[in-house]
């Protein structure tokens, strides 16, 4: 659990973070989102004390971070950055094993852990263990970055625009992988991004920042429905908020069980987000889809009325 109480950071005259309070529960994925220079990265870096805060308190499981030894603190917190910061002179395996080695794990355990993590992140050991970072694609390098952050099984993960430099397809794949990982590992994650789609897709709790302050925070749907002001509304997509919301809802949640009517010809996966179903309807010019499960077996149907959420 991470708590920030009235935290302020000044660089000389300039106030980068201005008295923000925030509480990230254990196992929660909290996304800080805002335009560049809004203080979101600074906030993140104050948690592992890469930057010391000027005022206020930051607590980790109820204890002020200032009371920890900063090096020991950082070894307990995973950290992933956009450019990966992989050590160019070390192999993938050595990069991933960094923190366990710093913590003086026995060699065998380090190796086992590295191999387990590489498997977890879809990096075949035989192929990647001895490669150097410059031999990896952007997506692979960032997978290694995530593996390195997870290596010593930290309860907290700080991620600073980790997928910002990747192409859209790789980015989306990694976002899904992160959600899968999170479903299994239940880490407490603070994730910084300026990409609202990414934020909405990942967040349990969404924190919108502007000029060093938190403008609004809460579950993504709550922010979508009740933005406190025009800034948040426009950040969340303005007129296109409906589509953003649809992206957060799954077909499964809106479908009706199979009725007496004939199956519609076009199909949609139950796991698919709602905007995909809408897109299919627009594309095929139909107002009804058959919902199928992972094995392509029909399990329900979705009508346009249901999709747009008319309660009847």
């Amino acid at each position: 659990m991470i708590e920030l109480f009235e935290v302020t950071k000044r660089f000389g005259e300039e106030v980068a973070v201005d008295g923000i309070s925030l509480r990230v529960e254990k196992g929660e994925l909290c996304v800080l989102v805002g335009t560049s220079g809004c203080g979101k990265s600074t906030t993140l870096r104050m948690i592992n004390r890469l930057i010391e805060h000027s005022d206020g308190e930051i607590h980790l499981n109820g204890q002020p971070v200032r009371t920890f030894d900063e090096v020991a603190l950082r070894r307990r917190i995973g950290y992933v950055i956009q450019s990966t910061g992989l050590f160019p002179h070390w192999t993938v395996a050595r990069n991933i094993g960094l923190v366990p080695r710093l913590l003086k794990w026995p060699r065998g355990e380090v190796r086992e852990r590295v191999e387990a993590l590489m498997a977890l992140l879809g990096l075949p050991v035989a192929e990647f263990a001895d490669k150097y970072p410059h031999q990896l694609s952007g997506g692979q390098a960032q997978r290694v970055g995530v593996a390195r952050a997870l290596a010593a099984d930290p309860e907290i993960l700080l991620m600073d625009e980790p997928f910002g430099a990747l192409d859209p397809i790789t980015r989306e794949a990694l976002q899904h992988e992160l959600l899968d990982l999170q479903a299994r590992l239940h880490k407490t994650i603070v994730f910084v991004t300026h990409d609202m789609d990414e934020a909405l897709r990942l967040a349990d709790r969404l924190v919108v920042m502007r000029q060093g302050r938190i403008v609004q925070q809460g579950p993504p749907l709550e922010l979508l429905h009740e933005p406190v002001d025009d800034f948040v509304a426009s950040m969340l997509g303005g007129e296109e908020r409906g589509l953003k919301e649809a992206a957060l809802t799954r077909v499964r949640d809106r479908m009706l069980p199979l009725g007496p009517r004939l199956l519609a010809h076009e199909r949609v996966a139950a796991q698919a987000p709602l905007h995909q179903a809408l897109s299919l309807m627009l594309w095929h010019r139909v107002d009804r889809l058959t919902v199928v499960d992972d094995d392509d077996i029909p399990i329900g149907e979705l009508s346009l009325r249901r999709l747009v959420g008319s309660k009847s």
Partner: peptide, 9 residues
């Protein structure tokens, strides 16, 4: 790289 090294503790 420096930042990551510090961040890793």
């Amino acid at each position: 790289v420096h930042e990551a090294a510090r961040g890793m503790g």
